[in-house]
Amino acid sequence: MKLWEGLEQDLNYNAMVSQRGILNLIHSDAQRDAFTRRGNAMILNGADADLLSTEIIQKRYPFLNVSNARFPIKGGLAQHRGGTVRHDAVAWGYARGADQMGVDIIQNCEVTGFRIKGGECLGVETSRGYVAGGKIAACVAGSSGRLMGKANMRLPIESHVLQAFVSEGLKPVLPGVITFGAGHFYCSQSDKGGLVFGGDLDGYNSYAQRGNLPVVEDVCEGAMAIFPMLGRVRLLRMWGGIMDMSMDGSPIIDRTHIEGLYFNGGWCYGGFKATPASGWCYAHLLATDAPHEFAKAYRFDRFEKGLMIDEKGVGNNPQLH
């Protein structure tokens, strides 16, 4: 979080980090218990969390369907420092920052293979020639399986399609991010005025980068369940992105069994919001060959050893996350 908060000044680029808060709605007593546990864990880990009553939620968000709902809203867990970032600006800002620090960014250059000798990775073959490197760091969210396959590695990861949607531009209605706890739906409003929303995975392995109607309908049902005011708002565009879905819902930042080849992937839905932390921990691993304090649990051997990662445990079916 702190990395986000200082990002813009670090990069001299406005990524439009906007901490307007995130609110996870609660619809049952069991959910309140689970969110209480999560909120406490967040505070114990040094983050902030706030449990909101139905009354406060109704007062702050008068347009939310609190009571005339199939699953009435019974509270919410808020993280006030959470929020949104303009994704393109983050990519551009990082690219510019990296470039200024002397990193060569080669566009439209596909890695076609690894050069591996005696269990050691020496470099990568690319569509524009061979590039040698002392350490090779893979971080190709969505394509992890395809890339590491070129090093004959199989991963505890499947690639799934996740759709995202944006509405037409509207005058401001939503202050932060709101998620629906009895279905699959989240929503925020961009600075340009479009509502940005989404929900569940389509649910099947796919690299096609497009989704299908059932999930569009499911997401919009979620939208109407908590925001019945959105009925006449128009959905402007839909995307399908590829998600690295790991088998236990947590990422992997680790060395591989091939000397000199490193891997960062399996971020499920969480990759973008973890970008600064993920990069930070990965850089630590690359520089020191030892996992960063925060990333010790995110290793390949956890599956073999049965090491559970707290707060998760979604099972060996990535589509069930």
Binding site: V216, E217, E221, A223, M224, A225, G231, R232, V233, L235
Partner: peptide
Amino acid sequence: PTAIGAFAGRDQG
């Protein structure tokens, strides 16, 4: 652009 309500159909409230 298509109304969100239409995608949700009758499954509302």
